[in-house]
């Protein structure tokens, strides 16, 4: 059980939680994740460790409400307990190249950049964050992200804030030499289409690129194989070998297809929780 100490809405569908999880906070490294379960009979879902405070024993997670479990989680308030929380899981992010590192975040992925970019900057890299969203209201954590990197770039699809366009368009400008300059390495975390687009933008340009894959997971310890992805024609278990992989080697098509395996059931489950919410007059 992990007690919720702080809750902050970041956008209409995104919430930030600071939870009491001393052992996980102490062991956590940038790029790792936890698995949570929020109710008896509930699903186990992976969530990135957005940040950690080792001294205070506090873990920060950011949840985007997309379906049953994330919505249950979104209803929890300060003082509530998350039924199960286990981690840190996965391999910490390793970026070998030093120099100008660009982190690209979208959706909950922006949150994952928090501890990651801070650590890179501490190690001496020049860091840029491109924080993207469809529109201004969906942008999250601008202020916090600004504090942990050297340059914060904001992009919105509709131009309601920052650069008017996709994160990949801004990335392309940098590759072409625009300030703050060509990246030596890129890491992208967010929705699959965004990560795919970033991958294509840097392909063949000698810019090592990492993406954080988000396959369906159950145990998160290598026991089920449900999270398998194909990278460089080899099968990998994202929960133990990942979640970060060399973007240019990832079989995205397969990853996208496998994530759609339960769309019908997810919808059924979501409809049900919607009904239940209406029935008790919540939301």
């Amino acid at each position: 059980m992990a007690k919720i100490l702080e809750k902050r809405p970041l956008s209409p569908i995104t919430k930030l939680y600071r939870v009491d999880a001393p052992l996980v906070a102490k062991a956590a490294k940038p790029g790792q994740f936890v698995i949570v379960r929020v109710r008896d009979g509930g699903e186990r879902i992976p969530l990135t460790i957005a940040d950690y405070d080792r001294e205070e024993g506090i873990l920060t997670i950011v949840v985007q409400e997309v379906g049953t479990t994330t919505r249950y989680l979104g209803q929890l308030e300060v003082g509530d307990e998350i039924l199960d929380l286990v981690g840190p899981l996965g391999m910490p992010l390793e970026i070998p190249v030093e120099g100008h590192i660009v982190g690209i975040g979208g959706g909950f992925g922006s949150a994952a950049l928090l501890c990651l970019m801070r650590e890179l900057r501490l190690r001496g890299d020049t860091t840029t964050i491109i924080n993207g969203a469809r529109e201004k209201d969906l942008l999250i954590l601008n202020e916090e992200l600004g504090e942990v990197c050297d340059n914060l770039e904001i992009c919105t699809d509709d131009g309601s804030a920052g650069f008017h366009g996709l994160v990949t368009e801004r990335l392309q400008q940098m590759i072409d030499g625009d300030a703050p300059g060509r990246p030596d390495s890129v890491v992208a975390i967010g929705p699959m289409p965004m990560m795919r687009a970033v991958t294509e933008t840097t392909r063949g340009k000698d810019i090592p690129t990492l993406v954080s894959l988000d396959p369906l997971m159950i145990d998160g310890t290598g026991m089920c194989g449900g999270c398998r992805v194909t990278v460089n024609d080899e099968v990998k278990f994202a929960c133990v070998d990942g979640p970060f992989f060399d973007a240019h080697q990832v079989d995205f098509e397969e990853a996208v297809r496998r994530n759609k395996m339960y769309v019908r059931q997810e919808q059924e489950s979501k409809d049900r929780t919607t009904c239940m919410k209406l029935a008790v007059g919540q939301d």
Binding site: G42, D219, S269
Partner: peptide
């Protein structure tokens, strides 16, 4: 894998979906 299939049902109770949240296909 058999592990995943059985875990979905035994540990996560997919046989009781949608009362339990984990499905099995």
């Amino acid at each position: 894998s058999a592990n995943e299939f059985l875990t979905r049902v035994n540990l996560m109770r997919a046989n009781d979906f949608p009362n339990a949240d984990t499905p099995v296909m």
